[in-house]
Design a protein around this nucleic acid. Structure first.
Lengths: 119, 119
DNA sequence: AAATTAGGTTTATTGCAATAAACTAAATGT
DNA sequence: ACATTTAGTTTATTGCAATAAACCTAATTT
């Protein structure tokens, strides 16, 4: 199965860790309550699952990520394009932009990113 | 609630219709069985839900789409970028490309799409 | 006129993501 | 020594997407 795939709740949770790692697990419980409204047991349940899938780790009550945000995001973006856009980035871009216009500045930035990948 | 959002099974189903509309409902039942392995009742259940949400319509046993594929795709792509990429297309592009290289040809195509939206 | 097909609806069942209550055991504070 | 805090696990519960069985009625075929 697809160990990289993060469900909605898992993704929100992973973000807390990416933004605060390394973080002590008791601190994480507090943070999850403040930011997600989760009870302690919920936090530990989700934490364990993500550890089992090799996405996070919890060593001596210090939680940190194994898979970095960029990797999860790349995976996510590639899944979407595969599933909904026939694996085609141009098709995705076309759909996303639709009739929307973008500024010269944005266009420059996007072209720069593309240039960089075309080397 | 978000009427445009299509769940996985719904999206696969909608694709059958986008590719074959207008289509008679009995034909659609056959097609769903062949392509998705669905029983008749499953097809009608999903069909009704999508009709209620204004995505499809079923008039005198002729099924067709109200929301076109391009619209659903645009919505989908925008949701992903909002949810996982902070609303930033450059961030998405960067994540998607990662260390991957693309051909000159692809790069040209992508730049053309961007140019078009920058007018 | 009896059987079959077309075109559905009503009402489950299953599976899994999301959430948490209740319990534990070890360490630490008083 | 006792109370509290830390750091969890075990075991539900809930909600909803996905799937389908069973039923229904009108039209068509035999």
């Amino acid at each position: 199965m697809d160990t990289y795939k993060l469900f909605d709740a898992e993704y929100k949770f992973a973000n807390l860790i990416w933004e605060n790692e390394p973080i002590n697990s008791t601190e994480l419980v507090k943070l999850s309550f403040e930011r997600l409204g989760w009870k302690k047991s919920t936090t530990y349940t989700v934490l364990r699952k993500l550890c089992e899938r090799g996405i996070l780790k919890n060593e001596a009550a210090i939680v940190s990520s194994v898979i970095k945000k960029e990797d999860a995001q790349r995976h996510e973006s590639q899944m979407v394009i595969e599933k909904s856009f026939n694996g085609s980035l141009p098709q995705f871009l076309t759909a996303f932009l639709g009739e929307r216009k973008i500024s010269k500045k944005e266009a420059e930035e996007l072209k720069r990113i593309i240039e960089e990948a075309a080397k």
